[in-house]
């Protein structure tokens, strides 16, 4: 009798472990609208949250969202504090050496400069960008002086306060801000194509999970639902699959 009890207990335990594998913890920044942000109720919301939930549903996974500071988002992924990153992270060779990416779920788009006036000197003046982003790397290569901030919000504030002549970020992040400013802010210069699109970041050792999400993204691209979502969040002018 005792043995049978032990046996059932062991079975229950292993079943618990098997269940445990089904929860995928999704890391995001929660400070980059419309990709991801914290809504009025204090919950995560945005394009990537809707997309991520749909991908999880298609891959038959239980997912849970976790917010993490942008600066330490990759170290916390590789040390397994969560399993994926969906935080508007562009696929770059540099990042690909440390983590793996799924195929892109957001096409390669343009980054843009925003300033307070048409004459703003974004080529050799002071340009604000978020630290550890492709935009910051791009500014650092050019003639302009780069000032970096931990959050995208602070880059825009720095430009508004005159600390920086212009701010350089993803076009789709800046657009709602420019629209809401009532003419105070404007795009300056030509947009710059940067990065290889946005993908979901995963640990290099997590190939099985990567395949599941890749398959889910492919199915969303094929049935057009990803395009619908892109248009819903970013407007008609967004590049589509």
């Amino acid at each position: 009798m005792k043995k049978i009890l032990l046996g059932t207990a062991a079975l229950a335990l292993t079943a618990g472990v098997a269940m445990a594998q089904d929860t995928v913890r999704m890391g995001t920044e929660g400070a980059y609208p419309p990709y991801n942000f914290i809504d009025d109720n204090g919950d995560v919301a945005g394009f990537e949250i809707v997309l991520g939930n749909e991908l999880c549903a298609r891959a038959e996974l239980t997912c849970e969202w976790v917010t993490n500071d942008w600066d330490s988002i990759i170290p916390n992924l590789v040390s397994s504090n969560y399993d994926t990153i969906m935080a508007g992270m562009s696929i770059t060779d540099e990042r690909d050496e440390v983590i793996d990416f799924t195929q892109d779920y957001y096409p390669p788009t343009e980054s843009a400069y925003v300033a307070m006036s048409e004459e703003a000197d974004f080529e050799s003046g002071v340009v604000a960008a978020q630290a550890s982003t492709i935009q910051a790397a791009h500014v650092a290569e050019g003639d302009a002086a780069l000032i970096e901030f931990a959050t995208p919000e602070e880059t825009v504030s720095a430009m508004r306060s005159g600390e920086a002549d212009a701010v350089f970020a993803d076009y789709d992040y800046l657009k709602p801000i420019v629209d809401a400013s009532g003419g105070e802010l404007m795009f300056v210069g030509d947009p710059v194509p940067l990065g290889g699109g946005i993908g979901m970041g995963l640990r290099e050792s997590d190939t099985e999970l990567k395949e599941k999400f890749d398959a889910a993204i492919t199915s969303m691209k094929e049935d057009g639902s990803l395009n619908e979502l892109l248009v819903e969040w970013f407007g008609e002018e967004i590049g589509q699959y």
Binding site: A20, Q21, T23, V24, V78, S80, D83, R203, E204
Partner: peptide, 24 residues
């Protein structure tokens, strides 16, 4: 240690990845 990754078995995760967010 697999390259940059730190991978332990599911049962050794602290807290377990199936644990609710408040435990994390």
């Amino acid at each position: 240690r697999q390259g940059n990754d730190f991978v332990v078995c599911q049962a050794a995760k602290l807290p377990l990845s199936s644990a609710p967010q408040w435990i994390h």
